[in-house]
Write a protein that binds this DNA or RNA. Structure first.
Length: 528
RNA sequence: GACCGCGUAGCUCAGCCGGUAGAGCAACUGACUUUUAAUCAGUAGGUCGUGGGUUCGAAUCCCACCGCGGUCACCA
């Protein structure tokens, strides 16, 4: 596999750098030569080790304890105390002091010091230190002690090479700080940076908590297609891909919505949810990755009032699971998920900010004129709802630091929401904002097939008018609604943003193990 | 996409009003067996992102390109 990948990348490089390689004085294998210089010392040790008859990559090592377990178990052991407690531990060599007498051995649970004293070890074991480098994975057998200076240690009896590392680790004090390299070589970032490990582990905890909450309420987790023949479920620019056997283009999904509602139509379950990736062919920023993870859920016989309560309960459950408190620190702000969240209508917030009640403005043209009067440069194509949304985003959105449900969105920006029971210019929709970010989008689902068809047709008209983010008409979805979608509430939460909030991360790439990066085949650092 | 900034040894960084490339850590050789970024002495390691240009001479000045970061606009 590795050989194949190397070959493949070299082939790409050859295409891209054929001019340079055509020069006979330019060594085609310069990358490999660099590697050989870097690896020479370690390869030499590896070969010397293998000449002693040792397997540097054995198949199995029986551990008795993890490092973290030992730190917990012996937390009360006094300085200078020796025990006869015999352990087998394993991990990566992260530091060697005093010529290998002290080794910091880490595993995912923590770190313990390995103490190699020649009077405790057979000479044949002690000599193995000569073959060990920073970065190697080793197993150690010995007894537990705490040094006079207070460091919990294993007094080594024997050492086993488990995996010989052939490349040097980054510098131990500063670690790896090059941001690009941290994302491109996440494994190195994880080895070196505790903070990176913590953030990504917290992400896993958050996803686990979401599943627990949903499963506890009886919702069924499902999977729906990521290859969509029809772009729908959200307004967004999609990726297009091609299926060879069908000779057909597919869109990578921008949202699972239309499939999940089909499952509710089918009576598969009262509530379904999907946690998965959506793909949007749009800009990349500290808050946007081309593929991002969201949960979407649909609950029959709930409306958007029920969903507001549900979202508050869910987020509190997650925050408590991760932090043990409903209050979190993000940058210099303290955010409290505990109290009931504020509920403010979008039109009302616009009125608070501008003094203008847009409900008194009937037409799109009048709305645009009023916006212009207020100093906003709105698109001449904007309809009434788009004007309201634009002014909301410009004036109010960034101020919504504490959890707030923004409710009752205009009809014409909400093509899948049910009309508001009290006002047909609005819909029963809400978006939950925290720290100025939208973290949830939810609504009482539109289930009148005649209305849905009309909304699709509006989308198609917008699409033909040049809006490539508008949805396509999904006939089969309308057909499904014609069989009958019960009254249903649906919602989606962007998990990456939520993880950013709960890990105090300022860049979405910090909460995604392998964020989307521009390929850089010509860079020798990436060509390894 | 626009603007600003960055790219020098495996890693962290100096050097940049042009004069043949420097430190610390890592590595290698040696000393040292109770260290915590261990210490001490020595050695080796770099087409200074890529390609052009100006110049007697470019890491340094200019142009283009690649990648990254930040800000802004649209999207979660």
């Amino acid at each position: 596999m590795t050989i194949f990948l190397t070959y493949h990348i070299n082939a790409i490089m050859t295409q891209k750098t054929s001019a340079a390689l055509a020069d006979p004085s330019a060594p085609a294998s310069s990358v490999q030569q660099d590697d050989n210089i870097l690896r020479a010392a370690k390869l030499k040790k590896l070969q010397a080790l293998e000449e002693t008859g040792t397997n540097a990559f054995p198949h199995k090592f029986e551990r008795t304890h993890k490092q973290g377990e030992l730190q917990d178990k012996y937390a009360g052991l006094e300085n200078g105390a020796e025990t006869e407690d015999h352990v087998h531990i394993a991990g990566r060599v992260m530091a060697m002091r005093n010529n290998g007498m002290f080794i910091d051995l880490t595993d995912p649970s923590g770190k313990i010091q390995v103490f190699c004293h020649k009077e405790s070890m057979e000479p044949s074991e002690f000599q193995k230190l000569d073959y060990i480098d920073l970065g190697d994975i080793i197993g150690v057998e010995g007894t537990i002690r705490r040094t006079p200076r207070g460091e919990l240690s294993v007094r080594t009896k024997s050492i086993t090479m488990l995996t010989k590392s052939l490349l040097p680790l980054p510098e131990k004090y500063h670690g790896m700080t090059n941001i690009e390299q941290r994302y491109r070589q996440r494994y190195l970032d994880l080895i070196m940076n505790e903070q990176s490990r913590t953030v990504l582990r917290t992400r896993t905890m958050i996803v686990r908590a979401i599943r627990e909450f949903m499963n506890n309420m009886g919702a069924m987790e499902v999977e729906t297609p990521m290859l969509h023949p029809i772009m729908g479920g959200a307004a967004a620019k999609p990726f297009v891909t091609h299926h060879n056997a069908f000779d057909t283009d597919f869109f990578l999904r921008v949202a699972p919505e239309l499939y999940l509602k089909r499952l509710i139509v089918g009576g598969f379950a009262d509530a379904v949810y999907e946690i998965g990736r959506n793909f949007r062919n749009e800009g990349v920023s500290i808050k946007h990755n081309p593929e991002y993870t969201a949960i979407e859920a649909y609950h029959s016989y709930m409306d958007y009032y029920d969903l507001m309560n549900l979202i508050e309960d869910l987020v509190r459950f997650i925050v408590l699971a991760v932090h043990g408190s409903t209050k979190i620190q993000y940058g210099d702000k303290v955010i409290d998920f505990g109290p009931p969240w504020a509920r403010k209508s979008m039109v009302g917030l616009v009125q608070e900010e501008t003094g203008v009640d847009f409900m008194t403005i009937e037409t799109a043209a009048a709305a645009r004129a009023k916006a212009a009067e207020l100093g906003f440069k709105v698109d001449p194509q904007f309809n009434w709802g788009q004007v309201v949304e634009y002014i909301f985003a410009e004036t109010a959105e960034h101020k919504l630091i504490q959890p707030t449900h923004v409710i009752d969105h205009p009809y014409d920006i909400s093509p899948l929401s049910k009309l508001h029971r009290d006002n047909p210019r609005l819909t029963e929709r809400f978006e939950s904002y925290v720290n100025g970010w939208e973290i949830c989008n939810a609504f009482t689902e539109l289930n009148d097939p005649r209305d849905q068809l009309a909304r699709f047709q509006e989308q198609v008209a917008q699409r033909e008018g040049g809006n490539e983010e508008s949805m396509m008409l999904d006939d089969d979805f309308v057909t499904a609604l014609e069989y009958g979608l019960p009254p249903t509430g649906g919602w989606g939460v962007g998990i990456d943003r939520l993880v950013m909030l709960l890990t105090d991360s300022s860049n979405i790439r910090d909460v995604i193990a392998f964020p989307t990066l521009k390929p850089n085949f010509g860079n020798k650092k990436s060509a390894e």
